[in-house]
């Protein structure tokens, strides 16, 4: 299932925020490889650097030090405008909430990203319908976000993330604002897409109900990888720090 060339390589990522007089070290020398088809959870306490790591992998933020290779391409030096194109064509994003354009219906929200990519009208609506069916919302094509529940909105967001045929999907706490049933439901769908289509998912969470569903769990503590394990118990990399 896993090829030799990792899809994502983070090499010695450091991130320091200098906004206040006390610099905040959000990531401290983080290196990970993620392969195509993996279903990875990044977990850790609040402030441990999960969002920062996802943002840097997704090209939304720049590392203070270190490199990100996506499919072998170094994205650290891309201009802002090139990064936007890179994100549009390679990465699907799901955020914690309010992912959707409020004035567009479910199907229009999904078509929107394909419109940005320049996909033809006919292809757009065909794919949008397929995707909404895949996330179980075939009957909600023309509902606006405010007519959908939080869980349904997140499912539309997942469908939108898939629409652009990205190399992988980044989801920062996609279930944080959902009740546990909707959270499980969303994870079911993500897992199914992962298994059926080999879609690579990386999501962050501090919800124990959700992290168990991951195939690989990366534990972050204070900007360090404390533990990186597959759910079969196989510890992939020895962590730098000694476990207590």
């Amino acid at each position: 299932m896993k090829t030799d060339q990792p899809l994502i390589q983070a090499l010695g990522i450091h991130k320091t925020y200098n906004h206040s007089h006390v610099p905040v070290q959000a990531l401290d020398d983080v290196s990970i490889d993620i392969h195509k088809g993996e279903f990875t959870a990044i977990v850790g306490p609040s402030g441990s650097g999960k969002s920062t790591l996802l943002n840097i992998i997704g090209g939304l933020d720049h590392a203070s030090r270190g490199k990100i290779l996506i499919g072998g391409q170094d994205i650290s030096n891309l201009s802002d405008s090139d990064l936007i194109d890179f994100r549009k064509n390679n990465i699907g994003f799901v955020f914690q909430s309010f992912n959707l354009i409020p004035v567009l219906t479910a199907i229009e929200n999904i078509e929107f990203i394909m419109l940005l990519q320049g996909t033809s009208k006919a292809k757009r609506s065909k794919r949008a319908i397929e995707l909404l069916n895949a996330v179980g919302l075939g009957d909600k094509l023309h509902s606006r976000p405010n007519q959908l529940s939080g869980g349904q909105q997140q499912r539309v967001a997942v469908a939108r993330a898939l629409a652009s045929k990205p190399a992988f999907i980044l989801a920062d706490e996609p279930t944080a604002s959902l009740d546990s049933q909707s959270a499980n439901n969303l994870l079911d769908i993500m897992q199914e897409l992962n298994q059926l289509e080999q879609t690579t998912f990386i999501f962050s969470t501090h919800d124990p109900r959700v992290m168990d569903r991951a195939e690989r769990i990366i534990h972050l503590v204070d900007g360090n990888i404390e533990k990186d394990s597959y759910t079969n118990g196989n510890i992939k990399q020895p962590t730098l720090k000694q476990l207590p």
């Binding site: 997704g58 405008s81 936007i84 194109d85 354009i101 940005l116």
Partner: peptide
């Protein structure tokens, strides 16, 4: 912000 994040140019 979301739109810019998912790939809409300024």
């Amino acid at each position: 912000c979301v739109l810019k994040a998912i790939g809409m140019k300024s």
